[in-house]
Computed example of a mutant assay.
Amino acid sequence: MATNELVVTVGDVVEKLAGATIQHGDLNDRIYLMEMSSEASAKQVIHAIEELAQTNNYGKIFIKTPKSKQDAFLHSGYEIEASVPGFYRGLEDALFMVKYLDADRRELENPELVQEIIDVSQDKDTVEAQGLPVKHTLRELGVDDTKAMAQIYGQVFPTYPFPISDPVYLIKVMNDFVRSFGVFDEHNNLVSLAACEIDRKGLNVEMTDFATMPDFRGQGFAHELLHFMEEAMSKDGIKTAYTIARSRSFGMNITFSKAGYEFAGMLKNNTNISGSIQSMNVWYKHI
């Protein structure tokens, strides 16, 4: 099957295959079907990605698809791990579906802790934004900020599914589908940031790439960024916000629950982040 390479990431590649956009490689040891064109045949896509997975001996296939296209995947042995209502334009649900090619990949490490984090997070009451500390500011980031952004990402994340520690990559996505926001201290140093990965056609946004320098943690910057980003996305006509958070992070799961997000499911052993393959929790909110 002919492919057209789009973006080479650290260890993985993003490319077109059978009318679908996929990411695959050894870093995450998986294929991630990110989007199918409206003309793509689900059966042809399944055949192509499974052939690619066998060729490269990947452990997992992970897909995001409109609910209306689920039947072909269900009939091919895919399972639903998460579901976001009204994901596409506020009208159609999105399903996060998987097929495990390595049986060990479906086994959770420390499932009691993972479930405790979900339970603790869901028990939290919704909290409004409290404001930043004195002399701190929050604004949208631009091309001139990408060097500082990359430095923070490189310090915070030993590994990440996309090369966010590369300023060239940050500029590329910033010029395409990403808006980033950051908190600055009293000396105008960037100390915390996050990004909005926007699907303008589907009117949804992934709230992602949250990172805070160690000396500035515990001050609620992620919560403030999330609130600010939601307002910006709502003004931009976006209807649904979601995140894919590390399942073993109390902080990030609690942040989204306290901001009014609903738990949508867990993606087992899905993403290489912070030095290992980790399970990820999906949270969503209509904004």
Rank of each mutant, 00 (worst) to 15 (best):
residue 55 T to G: 03
residue 204 N to H: 10
residue 213 M to A: 13
residue 95 L to E: 06
residue 258 K to M: 09
residue 159 T to G: 09
residue 226 L to K: 01
residue 138 L to S: 01
residue 102 D to A: 12
residue 285 K to C: 02
residue 97 M to L: 07
residue 148 A to P: 01
residue 98 V to H: 11
residue 178 V to T: 13
residue 163 P to M: 08
residue 166 D to Y: 04
residue 224 E to T: 09
residue 122 Q to L: 14
residue 86 G to D: 03
residue 32 Y to K: 12
residue 24 H to W: 13
residue 261 Y to K: 04
residue 18 A to S: 13
residue 11 G to T: 12
residue 19 G to C: 01
residue 238 I to H: 02
residue 256 F to H: 01
residue 90 G to F: 06
residue 271 T to N: 00
residue 151 Q to E: 15
residue 217 R to V: 12
residue 14 V to T: 10
residue 65 T to Y: 02
residue 70 Q to F: 01
residue 186 E to R: 15
residue 68 S to A: 10
residue 96 F to V: 04
residue 123 D to R: 15
residue 132 L to K: 06
residue 179 R to S: 15
residue 210 F to Q: 05
residue 203 L to H: 13
residue 175 N to A: 08
residue 232 A to T: 10
residue 178 V to Y: 05
residue 175 N to L: 03
residue 121 S to G: 05
residue 76 S to A: 12
residue 69 K to C: 01
residue 247 S to W: 05
residue 133 P to Q: 09
residue 276 S to Q: 13
residue 142 G to K: 00
residue 206 E to S: 01
residue 111 P to W: 08
residue 1 M to K: 13
residue 107 E to R: 14
residue 272 N to E: 07
residue 66 P to E: 00
residue 8 V to N: 13
residue 172 K to Y: 08
residue 168 V to C: 06
residue 220 G to T: 04
residue 93 D to K: 05
residue 21 T to E: 08
residue 162 F to V: 15
residue 138 L to V: 04
residue 210 F to W: 06
residue 264 A to M: 04
residue 213 M to S: 12
residue 190 L to M: 02
residue 87 F to H: 14
residue 99 K to C: 06
residue 279 S to H: 00
residue 93 D to E: 11
